[in-house]
Design a protein around this nucleic acid. Structure first.
Length: 320
DNA sequence: AAAACGCGCAACCGCGACTGG
DNA sequence: ACCAGTCGCGGTTGCGCGTTT
């Protein structure tokens, strides 16, 4: 098909880009840099609109793009960021160097949504999918909480009560453990709850905090590689870090969560430090005493005095 | 073998925000 | 204050290809 190149009414090309077009656009941008997209087609000799050129550059031609499959870490990060940010793909993409918003969006829609549903999690709310309400699968006593649903999520079990949801390592322990709903920022402390090391899962507060921490850690800690699901307690960072650093990081997490909580629009409730940390907290009591905030402070941590927020988290949340 | 189907992904579209005249 | 041009974002579409019937 022969176009009249002198015509101002030339029809703009749509659809897939040819290698020749890619070459023209790539040469132009690498030579002159990114400027006014509306003038790029004319200058580069392309029959495309500026918008199309911009998209092609951002999503495909940019040299800093990371190609290939998403890693487990990236996958987990996307899920956690989505639970906080929702479908704000460009914001999510800022936390994944080399990935575009379009790529992440496609990955979410084609893969992650399905994966979460298979695990019994609603991808839009990040809460367990409801099954038959009121049904007690084994006739067991699940404590004082009304059992609403139950689902299997990989190696772990999830019980959903009318007050929130909890994890348990055996059906016998179901209902005796702490209830925690990290996504609506709502938690209930049950009498007699004793945290057991290693029985947490993705939705346990310990792991949830861990996930949030990776926002800064993902770029700082290259040795971090085990993913979220196998983390056992709050006092971890994949590799060993100094105890005071952990303490300050935990502090950041707490502040971070309060920040999320406030921004999420849900009723603001203070996070109880005992509910977040496990025995590792007690082991480091001495260390905590030396910090600016005492456990009493943490017990009822007012947002107004949140001055210990790390730069990374603060900047991130300022963007939201 | 071929039609139907499903899936993943690149690209498009519409809209709101921003900016400069 | 208004308007036009541009940019960036998120939802949607439709093409290409592999799989199933």
């Amino acid at each position: 098909m022969v176009h009249n190149s002198n015509s101002s009414k030339q029809k703009l090309k749509k659809g897939l880009w040819s290698p020749e077009e890619d070459q023209k656009l790539f040469n132009h941008i690498t030579k002159y840099g990114v400027g006014c997209w509306s003038s790029v087609p004319k200058q580069a000799g392309l029959q495309r609109c500026g918008k199309s050129c911009r998209l092609r550059w951002i999503n495909y031609l940019r040299p800093d793009l990371k190609r290939g499959m998403f890693t487990r870490q990236e996958e987990d990060l996307i899920i956690n960021l989505h639970s906080i940010l929702g479908n704000r793909w460009s914001r999510i993409a800022t936390q994944l160097p080399g990935r575009t918003d379009n790529e992440i969006k496609n990955f979410w829609n084609t893969s992650l949504k399905k994966k979460l549903r298979q695990k019994g999690i609603d991808p839009s709310t990040h809460k367990p999918l409801m099954r038959e309400i009121g049904e007690d699968p084994d006739g067991k006593n699940y404590g004082d909480n009304k059992l609403e649903s139950m689902s299997m999520t990989g190696d772990h079990n999830l019980v959903y009560f009318d007050t929130g949801f909890a994890t348990y390592d055996s059906k016998e322990n179901a209902g005796k453990k702490q209830l925690f709903d990290p996504f609506s920022m709502f938690e209930v402390q049950q009498e007699g709850y004793e945290p057991i090391q290693g029985d947490q899962m993705n939705f346990a507060p310990q792991n949830y905090y861990q996930n949030l921490r990776t926002l800064e850690q993902v770029q700082l800690d290259s040795s971090w590689e085990s993913g979220f699901s196998e983390m056992g307690n709050v006092n971890c960072g994949g590799s060993e870090t100094g105890s005071s650093e952990n303490s300050s990081s935990r502090m950041s997490e707490l502040v971070f969560m309060n920040h999320v909580k406030e921004r999420s629009g849900s009723v603001f409730e203070f996070v109880k430090a005992e509910e977040i940390s496990t025995s590792s907290w007690e082991e480091e009591q001495d260390d905590h005493q030396q910090n600016r905030y005492t456990p009493e402070d943490l017990n009822c941590f007012p947002l107004a005095s949140l001055s210990d927020l790390t730069e990374a988290n603060f900047d991130f949340f300022e963007q939201i």
